Amino acid sequence: MPKQEFFVDMTCEGCSGAVVRVLNKLGGVQYDIDLPNKKVVIESEHSVDTLLTTLKKTGKDAQYLGTK
């Protein structure tokens, strides 16, 4: 499965917790959250658009950075 890297404007554990919640609801994803660098790497068969839309549901600024 491809690994996609995203920037998410997370400033605290609560922010990263919101990311965890929306990704778990989406299902079929494995992810690694790098809070200090505000990055989320997601391994999934979902499209980049679906993943980005899901991350934006946290209310945080989210941007696609590319394939890892």
Score class of each variant (00 low, 15 high):
1 M>S: 13
1 M>R: 13
1 M>C: 08
2 P>Y: 01
2 P>T: 03
2 P>D: 09
3 K>H: 07
3 K>I: 14
4 Q>L: 15
4 Q>T: 13
5 E>W: 05
5 E>K: 15
5 E>V: 14
5 E>I: 04
6 F>S: 08
6 F>Q: 05
6 F>H: 06
6 F>I: 04
6 F>K: 00
6 F>M: 07
6 F>Y: 14
7 F>P: 06
7 F>A: 00
8 V>W: 06
8 V>L: 10
8 V>F: 12
9 D>K: 12
9 D>R: 12
10 M>F: 09
10 M>S: 06
10 M>K: 11
11 T>V: 13
11 T>H: 15
13 E>N: 14
13 E>W: 01
13 E>P: 09
13 E>Y: 09
14 G>L: 11
14 G>C: 02
14 G>P: 06
15 C>M: 13
16 S>F: 14
16 S>P: 02
17 G>Q: 13
18 A>N: 11
20 V>I: 15
20 V>S: 10
20 V>Q: 13
21 R>M: 09
21 R>Q: 15
21 R>N: 11
21 R>L: 12
22 V>G: 09
22 V>L: 12
22 V>F: 11
22 V>P: 03
23 L>R: 10
23 L>W: 08
23 L>M: 14
23 L>N: 07
25 K>I: 15
26 L>D: 01
26 L>A: 00
26 L>F: 11
28 G>S: 09
28 G>W: 10
28 G>L: 12
28 G>A: 13
29 V>E: 08
29 V>P: 08
29 V>K: 09
30 Q>V: 03
31 Y>D: 03
33 I>M: 07
33 I>L: 12
33 I>P: 10
33 I>G: 09
35 L>R: 09
35 L>I: 11
35 L>Q: 05
36 P>Q: 08
36 P>F: 05
37 N>R: 14
38 K>R: 15
39 K>W: 03
39 K>V: 12
40 V>A: 05
40 V>K: 06
40 V>H: 07
41 V>Y: 01
41 V>L: 13
41 V>C: 04
41 V>D: 01
42 I>C: 01
42 I>D: 01
42 I>T: 01
43 E>R: 13
43 E>D: 10
44 S>P: 03
44 S>R: 10
44 S>L: 10
44 S>W: 03
45 E>I: 09
46 H>W: 09
46 H>K: 14
46 H>T: 05
46 H>V: 07
47 S>D: 08
47 S>M: 02
49 D>W: 05
50 T>I: 12
51 L>H: 03
51 L>M: 04
52 L>H: 02
53 T>H: 09
53 T>V: 07
53 T>F: 01
53 T>P: 00
54 T>L: 05
54 T>I: 01
54 T>R: 03
54 T>C: 09
55 L>H: 06
55 L>D: 00
56 K>Y: 00
56 K>C: 02
57 K>V: 00
57 K>I: 00
59 G>M: 07
59 G>S: 04
59 G>L: 03
59 G>F: 03
60 K>Q: 14
61 D>C: 00
61 D>L: 14
62 A>Y: 04
62 A>W: 00
62 A>K: 03
62 A>M: 00
63 Q>P: 00
63 Q>T: 12
63 Q>V: 03
64 Y>S: 08
64 Y>I: 02
65 L>F: 04
65 L>I: 13
65 L>N: 04
66 G>S: 11
66 G>R: 06
67 T>G: 04
67 T>R: 13
67 T>W: 00
